[in-house]
Simulated assay, not measured.
Amino acid sequence: MTGGPTLGVEEEFLLLDPDTGENAPVVEKVLAALPDAVRAQSRLEFRHSMIEMVTPVCTELPELAGRLTDLRRAAATAATAAGAHLVAIGAIPVAEPVREPTDDRRFHAIARHYGPIAYDAAVCGCHVHVGVPDRETAVRVCTRLRPWLPVLQALTVNSPLYAGADTGHASWRSLQLARWPALGPVPAFASAADYDRTVALLVSSGAMLDDSMVLWYARPSVAYPTVEIRVADVCPAPADTVLLAALVRSLVATCLVDGGGLPVPDHLVTAAHWNAAHSGMDGTLLDLHAGTARPAWDVVADLVTAVQPALRRLGDARLVAAELDRVRDEGTGATRQRRALARGGIPAALAEVTVMP
């Protein structure tokens, strides 16, 4: 397939001490060890124990898979050279001795404005960008995506651990982020002008430091005609990321031609996201279309049915079906970590999500 919406992915990773599992504040060494071409695809993150890798714009899933694999391998090699492991996990699993922001003026401004919240445990997400015709369309698509984003969240839960123990939540990252204002479920907007008025008011209130602090689970890009989906924990493996990207792109493509149903009340969207972060795929999800709790995999089946025409048009239907079968068989990242935790404790759980050079 050619001519479909473009894709780009940002993946955030933790740098962990190989012996203790604690966060290792060595990002400067890791960046220095990256080849020049790969360093151009990296980003300094808020913490010294984090790094972000950014793919170029892609049009096909095999291309995206190759880019993700190459970037992970290069970053893992650089991390090893710096005495750390590159770990694809959504939140600090053991401890973070150093929580000061990296040497970036903006990060320090955020820390001053938000105070102790900015020193909460580090978290890592996966952000998928999909091209759309224009910003007005991007805002409309974000609103239409609202009922489906908890399902994507449930499929990508990958942070059950904190302080060396199981939190009881499949995505501890999502619970950690709940303290931040203007982060979480995207509100329903009637237009780009409505969106802009809301953001301006939130900046005036101080809830947002500036208009770049829009951290909702879906948002239009400030600089490009894209929709950015930010709901997922960083995924354990490139195949998990590709599955997420394929589902996101098919949802965006569907929303471009489907006006959607009635707006879902904000409190129900919030409840659906909490449900997804707590249970992942190992229980029920709040079905925002049917208005009831249902087995998680039944809700995923409804998602696939809704986007099937787009998946076929994009040439992604077979891959998505195979990858969903794999996740159903192997479990989410959170399920895999818990299985390993029961088998061999924290070292085994972290081995499940450590990226190898």
Rank of each mutant, 00 (worst) to 15 (best):
3 G>L: 00
5 P>M: 05
6 T>C: 00
6 T>D: 11
6 T>E: 13
12 E>A: 05
13 F>P: 01
13 F>D: 00
15 L>A: 06
15 L>C: 04
22 E>Y: 00
22 E>A: 13
27 V>H: 10
28 E>G: 11
32 A>Q: 10
35 P>E: 09
40 A>Q: 15
40 A>I: 04
42 S>P: 06
44 L>D: 06
45 E>V: 13
46 F>H: 13
46 F>P: 03
48 H>C: 04
53 M>Y: 01
56 P>E: 08
57 V>M: 11
60 E>Q: 12
62 P>A: 10
64 L>R: 07
71 L>S: 03
77 T>G: 08
77 T>W: 03
78 A>W: 01
78 A>P: 00
78 A>C: 01
80 T>Y: 04
83 G>A: 05
86 L>H: 02
87 V>I: 10
92 I>Y: 00
95 A>W: 01
103 D>A: 15
103 D>F: 09
109 A>R: 15
110 I>S: 06
112 R>V: 11
120 D>A: 15
120 D>E: 14
122 A>F: 09
124 C>W: 07
129 H>P: 11
130 V>G: 07
131 G>Q: 10
132 V>A: 02
132 V>L: 05
133 P>K: 02
135 R>I: 13
139 V>D: 02
149 L>D: 02
149 L>A: 06
149 L>V: 13
151 V>G: 05
151 V>S: 04
155 L>T: 01
158 N>P: 10
161 L>Q: 10
164 G>V: 07
165 A>Q: 15
165 A>V: 14
166 D>R: 12
174 S>Q: 12
176 Q>T: 15
177 L>Y: 14
180 W>H: 04
183 L>H: 13
184 G>R: 08
188 A>G: 05
188 A>Q: 02
189 F>R: 01
192 A>W: 03
192 A>G: 04
193 A>G: 05
200 A>T: 13
203 V>Q: 00
206 G>T: 14
206 G>C: 14
211 D>V: 11
214 V>N: 04
215 L>H: 14
216 W>P: 03
218 A>P: 02
222 V>T: 13
223 A>V: 12
225 P>A: 07
225 P>F: 03
226 T>H: 06
228 E>L: 11
232 A>Q: 07
233 D>E: 14
236 P>R: 08
239 A>G: 11
240 D>P: 05
241 T>D: 10
241 T>N: 08
242 V>S: 06
244 L>C: 07
248 V>S: 03
250 S>T: 12
250 S>C: 14
252 V>A: 06
256 L>R: 09
256 L>I: 00
258 D>K: 03
262 L>Q: 11
266 D>T: 04
266 D>V: 01
266 D>L: 02
267 H>W: 09
267 H>L: 08
269 V>A: 05
277 A>V: 05
280 G>K: 01
285 L>T: 05
290 A>Q: 09
290 A>S: 10
290 A>R: 11
291 G>I: 07
298 D>Y: 00
300 V>T: 06
305 T>I: 02
310 A>N: 06
311 L>W: 12
321 A>I: 00
325 D>A: 15
332 T>A: 10
335 T>K: 07
335 T>Y: 00
337 Q>L: 12
337 Q>H: 12
338 R>P: 09
339 R>L: 06
340 A>G: 12
346 I>D: 07
347 P>T: 08
349 A>S: 12
351 A>H: 14
356 M>V: 15
356 M>W: 14
